[in-house]
Design a protein around this nucleic acid. Structure first.
Length: 949
RNA sequence: GCGGUGGUAGCUCAGCUGGAUAUAGCAGCGGUUUUAUAAACAGCCGGUCGGGUGUUCGAGUCACCUCCACCGCGCCA
C-alpha cells in the first residue's frame, strides 16, 4: 500500500549524475567541444559584434604547465567566455615564447652529456624541436583545464614571420636613432668562454684572499687637499678579488662618511673612521693610531692616489653604495670588472677597462706588466678543492708585495657567483653590447605619457599597477638588448676586420623580409654576401665580402614584446590592435607589459593595450611561495591538480580567490572548494530533476499569476544576476563564487528548494501552484547555469545539455547562450521585505522546534504544530496575519494557529501535532484533523484532490 | 637596503566616505530525516580585525611605528 502511494508522488527524475567524476569525464567534453568546433561557433555567433581582444602573453615552452600558468590561462578563459556571453566578439589567439636561455641550456646540457659537438644551426634546430614538443604538451594541458582558444592561429615567437617582426621592432629602434654600442660588464664563464645570464649562475661559498692595499698619495697631492705631507701617506683599499687590481682606475668613497688620516708612526693611512680599528687589527699592528685629520668623503673627491704598481693615477670618486660594514670604506674600483664600478665609471667618464681575454688570461695590451701577461684568473674545480688560488691572484700579490703596497691580507669566505655548469667562480668582464637609449627622441616621456593615459581610463587593474610600471619605466637604465646566445633572433649587425660595427634600419628591414621566408637559421647558414644580396647598402658600408655577421641575439623580451605587432597589427585570428586587455602576473610590470610598451611606443607611438590586469602568485598555506623547484609531495603542475580534483574544481578554486593578492593553495582549501562544487552541482541537479515534466511553453505560468514564494525566489535571482554581473565586470570573480555559493546554499537549498518539495512532490501534476514553482525553477536554472558557465565550463555545459535534450552530450551548449537578464518585474522589494520578515519568524520556529527534537518529542518539522502569539500593530505580527494561509508551508510544519493578544510580545510556541488529535497523511506526511478515503486508502483531503486529478 | 601589495574566525571572503552587539558560506561538534539519500534540514561552537602608539565622544576603518608574507629592484667591493 505505502509503496503504491509513493508511486503517486512526482519525485525528482534526471539522468544528470549526482557524482561528477570530473577527472574521468571532463576529457570527453573537451573532445566534444573539439568535434563540434565550439570556439568557431562562438566566434561565428558574434561575427558582427564589437570586439574584446584579450591578448595572450606567451608562456615559455620548456616544461609542463605549472599551476600558476594554469591560473593565468584560466582567468583569461573566464573573461573571454563572460565577454562572449555578454555579446562581444572575443578572438583569443594563444601564444608561445620559444626562444631563450633556459631551452638553450637544457639542450646544450643534453648535447654535452652525449659528448657531441654541433654547429650553431644544429643547436638551434634542436632547440626548435625541443620547444615544439612542449608546445604540443602544453596545448593539451591548457585544453584539459577548459581553455578555449584559436589554436589553429596560435603564434610562436620562433615562427619565421614572427621573427621577422621582431627584427622589424629592432629596426624601429635603429630608425629612431636609439641603438648604440658600448661596453658593459657581464658574468663570464672562463671554461666555456661565454657570457652567462642571471639564471645560469649560482651563489656558492668561495674562499677568497682579502687584501688591504696602499694607494700612495704624493706629497704635492696631499698638500693640494690640505693633508699633512711630512710622512708617507696612502689610501688603503680592501678587495677580495686581487686579480682586478691591474684594472683599477679609481677609489670610491662614500661622500657622507667620515674618513681620517691616521698616523701609524712610520706612515699615515686614510680609511673610514669607523673601520680604522678593524684595519689596524687586520694588519696585526700594535701601534695605537693617532688621528691627524678628519674629512668627509665628499671633501676628498678627485684626490689622485697612485696605482701600486702601474704608473697611473687612481682618483677618488664618490659612490653611495660604499658602506662601512667591511673593508676600509675605500673601495677599489675597476669599471671593467663590476656592475657598480661600471656605473661609477660611466659617471666619472672612466675607461671601461678590461685587460682580461675570453680565456680569462691577462692580455698584453701594453699596460699590463709583462710578468703578469698570460696569467689566468681561472680557479678550476681542482684548484678550489686544493684551496689553491689563481695564478693571476698570486702574480698580483707578488707585485703588491714587491711594491710595498700590501698592507695586510687574510682569508675571506663569502658567497660568490659560480658558473652552474663548470662550477668555477665567474668573473665580471666588460664586453661590447648593444643598447637602446631610452631617453633619446622623447622615448621615455612618450612611454610615461602612455601609462598616464591608460590610468586616466582606469586601465591599470588594480590601480597600483600604474605606480609599478611607472616606476619601472622611469628608472630603467638604457636597455641592453644583446645576448651572447644562439637560440634567439639574430641582431642584424655586421663587422669589418677591425671589428667596426655596421647597422642600418633599412638593411635590417630587408633582412627581416628574408628571414620571414627562410627562417632565422638563414643568418647562420648563409654568407654575408648571400644575406645582403639584392639589398642596397648605405654609402659608408664596405662591400659584403669585407664583412662578417654578428653572432649576438636579441634579448628575448623583445621577442614577446613584439607580439602586439606580429599578431594584433596583422589581425591574426581576427584580432585587432591595440588589445583591450593584457592579463599576467604582477611580475610582468617589469617584464612583458614593459617590453611591449617600449616596442609599441617606439614603433607606433602608443601603448599596445587599453587595460592591464594583474594577478598575484600562488603560495602555499603558510603563505610561502610555491616555486617550481621546491620539494612538494607532487609536482605543482596543472595536470597533477586536474587529475586529482578535476578541472572544474580547480577553476572554481581560481574563481574563489581574490587573485589580486597572493593566491594560497592547499589540500584543505581545495577540499573546501570541492564541497562547494558538490553543493552547486546538487543544486543544479535538484532543479533539473524537478523539471522533468515541465516545458515552459506548455506549462509556464506568467509572473502575475505566480505564487508569493516563487516571486520571492525570482527577486533573489534578479539580485544575484545584478550582483554577479557587477562582479564579473570588475573582474572580482571571488565575489561571484561567494554570491553563487550563498545563493545555492541559503536561498535555494535551505529555503526555497526545501519548502518547494511538498508542492512539487505531492500536488497534482498540473496544479497551478506546482507549475508556478516549476516556472520559477526554470528561470532560476537558466540564470544560474549561465552565471556559472564561465567558471564551471564543464559542469554548466553538461547541465545545459541535460536541460535542453535530456542527454549528456548534444549540440546545445551553454557557451553559445547570452548572458542572463532578469525581467524587470522580478525585482519586487516590497514582497521581498514581507517574505524576509516571514523567514525571520521561520528561524524562530526552527529554534523552538529544536528542544522538542532533543527531548525526543519530535522528529521532522512536519510533525510540529505552531502557535504564534501576535502583538497587534507589531510588524511581524502584521505580516504573519496577512500570509496566515502560507505559514505552514513556509515553516514546513503541519499546522499554524495565530493568537492575537493585546499587550503581549510576539512569541512562538511549538507542540507535536499528535497532541492536537491530528493524524498524519501517509502520502504527504502532513498532520490533518481528519483523513478521507481514496482508492489508495485514507489520505488527507488535499491528497484526495491530487490523486483524482 | 629600497619601492609596491597585503595581513578580519581552522579555510575562503564582506565590512562604502570612522558610528551601536564585526559579515556570510564552508569546515568542526553533537542532532533530525530517509519523499534530492555517497543527498537534505535544524541547532551549537568559533574572531581583543598581525602587534604597538596616537588622533577622536567613538577606530577593523585615519596617522605613525613595528612584525610577517608575496612581487619587483639593489647589495655582498
Amino acid at each position: 500500500m505505502a509503496h503504491e502511494l509513493k508511486d503517486t508522488l512526482q519525485l525528482p527524475k534526471t539522468d544528470f549524475p549526482m557524482r561528477a567524476g570530473l577527472a574521468q569525464r571532463e576529457p570527453g567534453r573537451v573532445a566534444h567541444w573539439e568535434k563540434t568546433g565550439l570556439y568557431d561557433l562562438i566566434q561565428a555567433r558574434r561575427a558582427g559584434a564589437p570586439a574584446f581582444v584579450l591578448h595572450d602573453g606567451p608562456p615559455f615552452t620548456n616544461g609542463d604547465v605549472h599551476i600558476g600558468t594554469a591560473l593565468n590561462k584560466t582567468l583569461k578563459d573566464l573573461i573571454n567566455r563572460y565577454k562572449s556571453m555578454q555579446g562581444f566578439r572575443t578572438p583569443y589567439v594563444p601564444g608561445w615564447d620559444c626562444h631563450g636561455l633556459p631551452i638553450e641550456q637544457k639542450v646544450s646540457r643534453e648535447i654535452q652529456e652525449k659528448n657531441e659537438s654541433v654547429t650553431t644551426a644544429e643547436l638551434r634546430a634542436r632547440c626548435d624541436a625541443f620547444s615544439e614538443t612542449w608546445i604540443a604538451r602544453q596545448t593539451a594541458q591548457f585544453k584539459r583545464i577548459g581553455v578555449l582558444a584559436d589554436w589553429k592561429n596560435e603564434y610562436k615567437t620562433k615562427a619565421p614571420a614572427f621573427e621577422a617582426d621582431i627584427v622589424r621592432s629592432f629596426a624601429a629602434f635603429v630608425e629612431h636613432g636609439l641603438v648604440y654600442r658600448a661596453k658593459k660588464p657581464v658574468y663570464w664563464s672562463i671554461p666555456f668562454e661565454t657570457a652567462l645570464a642571471e639564471a645560469e649562475i649560482e651563489y656558492k661559498d668561495h674562499a677568497a684572499i682579502a687584501i688591504w692595499v696602499r694607494f700612495k698619495v704624493s706629497a704635492e697631492e696631499a698638500a693640494r687637499f690640505g693633508l699633512p705631507a711630512d710622512k708617507p701617506l696612502s689610501i688603503v683599499i680592501w678587495t677580495t678579488t686581487p686579480w682586478t687590481i691591474p684594472a683599477n682606475l679609481a677609489i670610491a668613497l662614500n661622500p657622507e662618511v667620515d674618513y681620517v688620516v691616521a698616523d701609524l708612526g712610520a706612515e699615515r693611512i686614510i680609511v673610514a673612521e669607523n673601520l680604522l680599528g678593524a684595519v689596524i687589527a687586520a694588519a696585526k699592528l700594535q701601534a695605537t693610531p693617532v688621528i691627524v685629520v678628519r674629512r668627509k668623503g665628499a671633501e676628498l673627491e678627485k684626490l689622485a692616489a697612485r696605482h701600486p704598481f702601474i704608473d697611473r693615477a687612481s682618483p677618488v670618486v664618490l659612490a653611495d653604495y660604499v658602506t662601512t660594514e667591511s673593508g676600509t670604506g675605500a673601495v677599489h674600483t675597476a669599471p671593467g670588472h663590476g656592475a657598480d664600478d661600471y656605473l661609477t665609471g660611466l659617471k666619472y667618464k672612466l675607461e671601461i677597462y678590461c685587460p682580461v681575454g675570453d680565456d680569462g688570461r691577462y692580455l698584453d695590451d701594453g699596460r699590463i706588466p709583462q710578468d703578469l701577461v698570460g696569467l689566468s684568473t681561472l680557479e678550476s674545480v681542482e684548484d678550489l678543492a686544493a684551496k689553491k688560488t689563481s695564478s693571476a691572484n698570486i702574480g698580483v700579490l707578488k707585485k703588491l708585495d714587491a711594491a710595498g703596497a700590501l698592507f695586510a691580507k687574510a682569508k675571506y669566505t663569502h658567497s660568490y657567483p659560480h658558473c652552474w655548469r663548470s662550477k668555477t667562480p665567474i668573473i665580471f668582464r666588460a664586453l661590447d653590447q648593444w643598447f637602446v637609449a631610452l631617453d633619446k627622441n622623447h622615448t621615455r616621456s612618450t612611454a610615461l605619457a602612455a601609462i598616464a593615459k591608460i590610468a586616466a581610463d582606469h586601465g591599470w587593474i588594480p590601480a597600483w599597477g600604474e605606480a609599478r610600471i611607472h616606476g619601472a619605466v622611469e628608472s630603467r637604465p638604457d636597455w641592453c638588448i644583446s645576448r651572447q646566445r644562439s637560440w634567439g633572433v639574430p641582431i642584424p649587425a655586421f663587422y669589418d676586420a677591425k671589428k667596426n660595427a655596421y647597422l642600418d634600419a633599412g638593411v635590417a628591414r630587408a633582412i627581416a623580409d628574408k628571414l620571414a621566408r627562410r627562417g632565422s637559421n638563414f643568418w647562420y647558414d648563409a654568407t654575408p654576401a648571400q644575406i645582403l644580396e639584392g639589398i642596397p647598402l648605405p654609402g659608408d658600408w664596405p662591400p659584403p665580402s669585407a664583412l662578417t655577421c654578428g653572432r649576438d641575439t636579441l634579448d628575448v623580451w623583445i621577442d614577446s614584446g613584439s607580439s602586439h605587432a606580429a599578431v594584433l597589427k596583422r589581425h591574426q585570428g581576427n584580432t585587432a590592435w591595440p588589445a583591450d586587455l593584457y592579463l599576467e602576473g604582477s611580475d610582468q610590470h617589469r617584464g612583458w607589459f614593459q617590453s611591449s610598451l617600449w616596442t609599441s611606443v617606439i614603433a607606433f607611438g602608443a601603448a599596445p593595450y587599453k587595460a592591464v590586469l594583474t594577478h598575484g602568485f600562488i603560495v602555499d598555506q603558510e603563505r610561502n611561495k610555491i616555486s617550481k623547484s621546491s620539494a612538494y609531495e607532487k609536482p605543482q603542475t596543472s595536470d597533477a591538480y586536474v587529475a586529482e580534483y578535476g578541472a572544474d574544481v580547480i577553476r572554481l578554486w581560481i574563481s574563489s580567490q581574490d587573485f589580486r593578492d597572493d593566491i594560497p593553495i592547499s589540500k584543505e582549501i581545495l577540499g573546501h572548494v570541492g564541497e562547494t562544487y558538490r553543493l552547486i552541482r546538487n543544486t543544479l541537479r535538484y532543479q533539473l530533476s524537478n523539471l522533468f515534466d515541465f516545458e515552459l511553453a506548455r506549462d509556464g505560468v506568467s509572473y502575475a499569476e505566480m505564487d508569493t514564494l516563487d516571486r520571492w525566489a525570482l527577486h533573489q535571482a534578479a539580485v544575484l544576476i545584478r550582483e554577479c554581473t557587477a562582479a564579473y565586470e570588475n573582474y572580482e570573480f571571488h565575489r561571484v563564487y561567494q554570491l553563487c555559493n550563498q545563493f545555492c546554499s541559503v536561498t535555494l537549498s535551505a529555503t526555497y528548494h526545501d519548502i518547494l518539495k511538498d508542492r512539487l512532490y505531492t500536488l497534482g501534476t498540473r496544479s497551478p501552484l506546482r507549475r508556478s514553482s516549476q516556472t520559477a525553477i526554470h528561470h532560476i536554472f537558466q540564470a544560474l547555469v549561465r552565471l556559472l558557465a564561465p567558471v564551471l565550463t564543464f559542469t554548466a555545459d553538461e547541465a545545459w545539455s541535460f536541460a535542453v535534450t535530456g542527454r549528456e552530450y548534444s549540440d546545445a551548449s551553454v557557451h553559445l547562450q547570452d548572458w542572463p537578464v532578469a525581467a524587470a518585474e522580478w525585482t519586487n522589494p516590497a514582497l521581498e521585505a514581507e517574505v524576509a520578515a516571514l523567514l525571520r519568524i521561520r528561524t524562530q520556529v526552527n529554534e523552538a522546534i529544536e528542544p522538542l527534537r532533543a527531548a525526543g518529542q519530535l522528529g521532522k518539522s512536519l510533525d510540529a504544530s505552531v502557535n504564534l502569539v501576535l502583538a497587534p500593530g507589531e510588524e511581524s505580527s502584521r505580516v504573519a496575519e496577512k500570509h496566515r494561509d502560507f505559514l505552514p508551508e513556509l515553516f514546513i510544519v503541519s499546522h499554524v494557529t495565530l493568537t492575537p493578544s493585546v499587550g503581549a510580545a510576539f512569541a512562538v510556541a511549538v507542540r507535536p501535532s499528535s497532541e492536537l488529535g491530528h493524524v498524519r497523511c501517509p502520502r504527504c506526511w502532513r498532520w490533518v484533523p481528519v483523513l478521507e478515503s481514496s482508492s489508495y486508502g485514507d489520505v488527507c483531503p488535499r491528497c484526495v484532490d491530487a490523486l483524482s486529478s
